[in-house]
């Protein structure tokens, strides 16, 4: 029996290397510099169509957050959820890997790759969260 290589829960949005590191994939407009997550085909600012696909920075600051107590069956509650502003600038939603009383607006956070359940065939998946720490 071979060991299964974990795969990204959303391969288009989250790229995971064999060593377990990873990054979110976004778009950058070469004309006006706007950044997007997830990737887009057309820049909403200037309607340019040849957007570049880029790795987004992995460190940012927390814009706002909540502690979710009621969710869909896919998620175990409670969990902290927040919007993170990454350099670009671009805003990304993710769970925050911290106790609720340790979370504050404006705190520095960094991307981390975490187990994210399995797919229908039982293959382990990797997802992302943001953990306190790092400097944007």
């Amino acid at each position: 029996m071979t060991t299964q290589t974990p795969v990204s829960f959303r391969p288009h949005d989250l790229v995971v290397a064999d060593d377990g590191t990873g990054y979110l994939r976004g778009s950058r407009c070469p004309s006006c510099g706007a950044h997007y997550f997830p990737t887009r085909e057309v820049c909403a600012g200037c309607l340019t169509e040849d957007l570049e696909t880029i790795p987004l920075p992995t460190r940012g600051t927390l814009y706002t957050y909540t502690v979710v107590h009621r969710s869909t069956p896919a998620f175990e509650v409670p969990y902290v959820l927040g919007y993170v502003d990454l350099p670009g600038p671009v805003r990304v939603l993710g769970q925050i890997d911290a106790e609720p009383d340790q979370v504050t607006i404006g705190m520095d956070v960094q991307l981390e790759i975490v187990p994210w359940g399995t797919d229908a065939e039982g293959t382990p998946l990797l997802g992302y969260r943001f953990a306190p720490g790092g400097h944007a």
């Binding site: 829960f9 959303r10 949005d13 997830p38 979710v68 009621r70 969710s71 869909t72 998620f75 969990y79 959820l81 939603l93 993710g94 769970q95 997802g127 992302y128």
Partner: peptide, 10 residues
Amino acid sequence: PEAAVGATMP
């Protein structure tokens, strides 16, 4: 993609 990481409307 936000629902995929746990977003609900509330």
